[in-house]
């Protein structure tokens, strides 16, 4: 189980995340929805620990001062001050916004680099990834940078799965995808939960395709969590309907 309690993140004096509390039960899909600059990515960075790296690099450059309050607890261990690679070792793997594929490596090599933490199950994981994303099979030797956006997204999710995560964080997995690829990605999220029992936390501004598959969701506005509930309650909420479905 992953818990975020009273998380507050400041960029200088700007409050990016305001007192957000979030719980993700083992093996569930949790959605985090909100518009641009609502704080979704910052929340994902805080859970995966990347925020600490950003903080360090900014401090070195003499850039923005970033402060983090609150706690991130994973399996009843406080991981708030652990570095990203340490958290990844515990099983929290982030599939970042804009995918961040290794552009000069081939698709297969991208997946192999993803298997850094779990070389033992590399074959099994590779089989699973190619099974849920059969399109990648045709491009195994192609450079990652030359794939289309949808293929890159599949590769990014696949690469994260190679690490055998227990919590998979997906940051804007539908960004810039055609409806065809959106469906593939949403289906893969369902499959990841069903066959691998991986906890999935999805941050997305395009909520419509994701809300039906989540178990529990949070709506974030200007850094604060304004609404939370199960899939049905969010679907039937008039505010959510008007803001996210345009009804």
């Amino acid at each position: 189980m992953l818990e975020v309690t009273n998380l507050m993140v400041f960029y200088e004096n700007m409050l990016a995340i305001n007192n957000v509390t979030l719980t993700a039960k083992k093996g569930s899909i949790v959605g985090v929805f909100g518009s641009n600059s609502a704080g979704k990515s910052t929340l994902m960075y805080s859970i995966s620990g990347i925020i600490l790296d950003i903080k360090k690099k900014e401090a070195m450059k003499g850039g923005e001062r970033i402060t983090v309050f609150g706690k991130v607890i994973f399996d009843s261990k406080d991981i708030t001050n652990l570095l990203p690679h340490e958290r990844a070792k515990m099983g929290i793997v982030l599939c970042p916004e804009r995918r961040r594929i290794f552009p000069e490596s081939s698709v297969l090599e991208n997946l192999k680099i993803g298997a850094y933490l779990d070389k033992r199950n590399e074959k099994k994981n590779l089989e699973y990834v190619l099974n849920i994303f059969p399109r990648l099979k045709d491009h195994l030797n192609r450079q990652g940078g030359f794939l289309s956006g949808g293929e890159q997204q599949m590769l990014a999710i696949g690469r994260a799965l190679m690490a055998s995560p227990s919590v998979l964080l997906l940051d804007e997995p539908l960004l810039g995808l055609s409806p065809y690829y959106q469906k593939i990605v949403v289906d893969s999220i369902k499959d990841i939960k069903a066959t691998k029992n991986i906890t999935v936390i999805v941050a997305e501004q395009y909520a419509r395709p994701i809300i039906p598959v989540i178990d529990y969701g949070y709506i974030i506005e200007n850094g604060s969590s304004v609404l939370e509930g199960t899939s049905e309650s969010l679907l039937n909420n008039p505010d959510v309907k008007s803001a996210y479905f345009g009804v």
Partner: peptide
């Protein structure tokens, strides 16, 4: 394994960190 990790870090340090590679 280490060689591939080096290649990952060389291309995108932060993406590699997310996969558990210690920079």
């Amino acid at each position: 394994k280490t060689g591939l990790a080096l290649k990952g870090i060389a291309q995108d340090e932060r993406a590699a960190m997310m996969l558990g590679i210690d920079s």
